[in-house]
Design a protein around this nucleic acid. Structure first.
Length: 296
DNA sequence: AGCTCTTCCTGAAAGC
DNA sequence: TGCTTTCAGGAAGAGC
């Protein structure tokens, strides 16, 4: 599933291909994951792609209005979220396309930007430039840019489980299930621990772990599971570097203990029970401990 | 505030 | 072998 490193990989690819190109036509298949399909089909042709950026897990394609005149709309942003199985690729217009390709954005150089998404958990929205600040405002900080102090402030003291906070896009933008598990493993923190129980050192270590893991994953072109590929169709290589994610039943790279899996924050979570000690009192954690205390 | 459950959707994997 | 069932999972919304 595309998370920050995968989206960054796609964005870097698109950045080589799209800026300067104009959209000359739009064809859509199924549109139930597109906010306003008609406005894409009618409003996009003629606009010129100015830039491609990443906003957390969102891809932001900035469009200059059509030269002609007619509409005096300002700049707009084609915002794409890949969901779980979304893919964006730039291919020659005549080339056969894979099943579940629901968006075709024809370019002025004979190629087209294609959106493919079997499960359609993705999202495509057109946001006017004037609305982009509000859009970004709903997202938390960039994990690669957040300072140690700010990280401490955003997460420290929260009563939620640390895993839930890492996945919360309004806290940090871009971290998903894979990189949450990988970062927690690296930092030696159990996913079910409450953020408020973590020490300053724990949080500092976690921030560093997140930075390390994300940067490494970006360098390797992301993780290819659920067949992720970049803008040119190449798979990433970080999946072979996973230390925790989907490794339940296998030995921990650090201590050899068997990696376990449990549901935390409604998500399947993978961790080493030895390197990442559970919140006080083995299974049950703080909740069971509080329960026992009350009963006693 | 934060947790759990549900919904969306399809293909892969497990079950029989 | 082949059909049926279950499940995963990002995000949002409901209900507790």
């Amino acid at each position: 599933m595309p998370e920050l490193p995968e989206v960054e990989t796609v964005v870097r690819g698109l950045r080589m291909l799209l800026p300067g190109r104009s959209i000359v036509g739009v064809r859509l298949g199924k549109t139930d994951f597109i906010d306003d399909p008609a406005s894409l089909e009618e409003g996009l042709p003629g606009s010129r792609i100015a830039s491609v950026e990443r906003l957390g897990k969102f891809i932001r394609i900035l469009l200059d209005p059509q030269q002609s005149a007619a509409q005096k709309e300002g700049r707009r942003n084609l915002i794409v979220h890949l969901g779980m199985t979304g893919r964006l690729a730039v291919r020659p217009a005549g080339e056969p396309f894979p099943p579940h390709t629901h968006g075709f954005f024809e370019l002025d150089d004979g190629r087209e930007l294609r959106y493919t998404d079997p499960r359609r958990f993705g999202r495509i929205v057109l946001v006017p430039e004037s609305g982009i600040a509000a859009f970004g405002g709903r997202l938390g900080d960039e994990p690669l840019e957040i300072s140690a102090r700010e990280f401490q402030r955003r997460l420290g003291g929260r009563r939620a489980r640390i895993k839930a906070l890492l996945l919360d896009q309004s806290v940090l933008r871009g971290v998903g299930n894979i990189y949450a598990d990988e970062s927690l493993w690296r930092a030696g923190i159990h996913p079910a621990r409450l953020a408020a129980q973590l020490s300053r050192t724990d949080l500092a270590r976690l921030r560093q772990a997140i930075r390390y893991v994300l940067r490494w994953a970006i360098r390797l072109g992301g993780s290819s599971i659920s067949d992720f590929v970049d803008a040119e169709g190449n798979p990433g290589e970080f999946q072979i570097r996973h230390r925790a994610y989907h490794r339940h039943g296998k030995p921990c790279f650090r201590c050899g203990t068997t990696i376990r899996q449990m549901i935390v924050a409604g998500r399947s979570s993978h961790f080493c029970p030895k390197c990442q000690p559970p919140p006080r009192g083995k299974r049950g954690g703080a909740r069971a401990a509080a329960h026992a205390k009350r009963a006693a």
